[in-house]
Design a protein around this nucleic acid. Structure first.
Lengths: 360, 360
DNA sequence: CTGAAAGCGCTTACAG
DNA sequence: CTGAAAGCGCTTACAG
């Protein structure tokens, strides 16, 4: 018999113990570096583990320890029909998830991912399933109504991403308000534009609501002519942005001097629509985005926008959750700083031009 | 006291049972639709569950059932320094993972993702960790040497992706050979090109080896002049493809009539390098890719390539694994068909031109 | 139809 | 330093 004979079923700690000639307690101790086992004990255990190829059962460890070392992450996967658009929003989610993953690994946690279909009514069921398999969960934007989050938070620690803080749950988000204020000030004060519009994202998005509100407050404070409302209603997608511009122009509306888009995707679509009509950005109308996705710098003209630290957003979400899991307390609402990225779509000169002007 | 008083620690099935006035066995039965509980029993249990917000502990269920309903997926995450390149390869992996996710959800499984840093020597440790928390694992390309896979396969069912079948593990891959043969025949027979090169991918990639081998066999069989070897050594990246072309041209080499690239990324880089030198594709040299990533159709000229069914690859990997987990047997090596996508970089006329010629 | 009890594979006080 | 035993929260024969 070439192969060492194996007990039926999968190996357990008992198999290792009997092969090493020690108790299961000793096996457990050397595997977890608890106590100070005699060198010979450690050695015999390790040999048995290696020879058998033993891998301890995570469920049993979790049950015994009260710790699964798993964090659940739930997000919506895009509607398959809009493949191009999906790419971008996926990128967004993926970068955040990457941040979660990296932070989780530092603590020995693994990430249980669960995407929910866009039209899947069963989100609650799926989330409960994940909750049972994890020590805590991170919910991306718009996964569950506030009441659902609060209820679930009674069973499992929850961090929501980019949401409004909800009772019982923790929340991590970017400072939309500060970013938007800086952007509006740049357009109204530095560029002295007199009229400005907000091309909105999805109305059910807390990020969008925060941006819209900050936009209006700041623009009004500076005495600008403000364009908002249903004719400026986009949906975070490039197609949505283009549609708004087309609709306005078809209706013979006069465009404001500057258009602040809810996100980069929207700006991208809006700029395309403008280009098709021969309207120049930023000469005829200035345009800005939000997010700073990778393509933003490659648009024509390069897009002025607000950068969110997306990977850090994910990492912070995990860290907050981990703190809650391990110590019982965690920050209820952490806000990450954003950064205004000035490129050319706002009307600023290109770096080359500026350098030349400065005589460099 | 507005909140119903809660036992310390998290809720257990005992809390539900006592609130409903039944045994834990009954609670378990209604939660799992086992047996035929009396309507009143079911009702009282359900009410207690809802009122308490109870979520059963996955670890305890797993330990009792012998089934975690978790599939582990391990892949390498790109080196952070090559951000642009990373995007593309990530897309590739993400699409496969999406396929795994979708197939897993159909069976009530969730996906435990674990990425391993590019230079992380500790892959084995991480994989073991995941193995303990899952019922089976799916390993992306080049995660573990064959011996490691075989050893781990003793503990957990394993499916490798795009690898060479390894003893003990199952494997799912695309039919590189058929795809490459069709591609080479198209270039040598349909276009009657006389000389052709293979711009290689990473040498440690089984996919690349299979493609290289099929390329050479088929090209030689058709009597073409074949260019391969160290001066044609790329690495799957656009930068790698460009570097090979630049190196060849700088050395004064004459390019063959057609260049078959190991993947689309490589073709993209090679086409850029050619364009910089004023060499026209396909007029001066024909070019093909492999994979059919989303951008392939948007290149100039649109890229002729071989499409791999990536999402299906992931879904199949899960299905094979699931079959092994539930029935104990699974296919050792499943090969998915690929499809030759003829666009213009091979020298074929654009659809519009062809339509015109055909008098349509 | 329902409950008492055993058992899943670990970890960890508790003795020795 | 080490082992026997209890306990983690479920599921499921086994009786009733």
């Amino acid at each position: 018999m070439p192969e060492p004979k194996r007990p039926k079923g999968p190996l357990t700690i008992y198999d290792v113990a009997s092969r090493a000639g020690v108790s299961i307690a000793s096996v457990s101790r050397v595997l977890n570096s608890q106590g100070t086992p005699r060198a010979s004990t450690r050695e015999r255990v390790m040999r048995a583990v290696t020879e058998l190829g033993f891998v301890p059962d995570g469920a049993a460890r979790a049950l015994s320890n009260g710790l699964k070392e798993v964090v659940g992450v739930v997000f919506r996967r895009g509607d398959e029909t809009h493949f191009e658009d999906e790419d971008e929003s996926l990128l967004f989610i993926d970068v955040i998830n990457r941040g979660i993953d990296v932070a989780a690994q530092r603590r020995g946690f693994d990430v249980l991912m669960s995407s929910v279909g866009f039209n899947d009514q069963n989100a609650t069921t799926r989330i409960s399933g994940v909750a049972g398999k994890a020590d805590g969960i991170i919910l991306h934007d718009r996964m569950l109504p506030a009441a659902g989050v609060t209820r679930l938070a009674g069973m499992v620690p929850i961090v929501t991403l980019a949401g409004t803080p909800v009772r019982g749950a923790m929340n991590v988000r970017c400072d939309n308000e500060a970013g938007m204020r800086a952007l509006v000030r740049h357009l109204l004060v530095d560029h002295r534009y007199q009229s400005v519009a907000y091309l909105s994202g999805r109305t059910d998005s807390p990020d969008n609501r925060a941006r819209a509100r900050a936009f209006e407050l700041e623009a009004v404070a500076h005495g600008a002519e403000v364009h908002v409302g249903s004719s400026w209603q986009g949906n975070y997608s490039a197609a949505g942005g283009a549609k708004v511009i087309d609709g306005l122009l078809d209706a013979g509306e006069k465009l404001p001097r500057a258009i602040v888009c809810a996100n980069d995707q929207t700006a991208l679509g809006a700029m395309h629509a403008l280009a098709r009509r021969g309207i120049r950005v930023p000469h005829d109308v200035a345009m800005t985005g939000f997010d700073d996705v990778p393509v933003a710098r490659h648009l024509h003209p390069p897009l002025t926008t607000v950068r969110q630290p997306m990977q850090e957003l994910g990492a912070t979400a995990f860290d907050v959750l981990y703190s809650k899991i391990s110590t019982g307390k965690g920050d209820a609402d952490v806000v990450l700083p954003v950064q205004l990225i000035i490129r050319e779509s706002c009307g600023c000169a290109s770096r080359a031009v500026r350098a030349a002007k400065d005589g460099i």
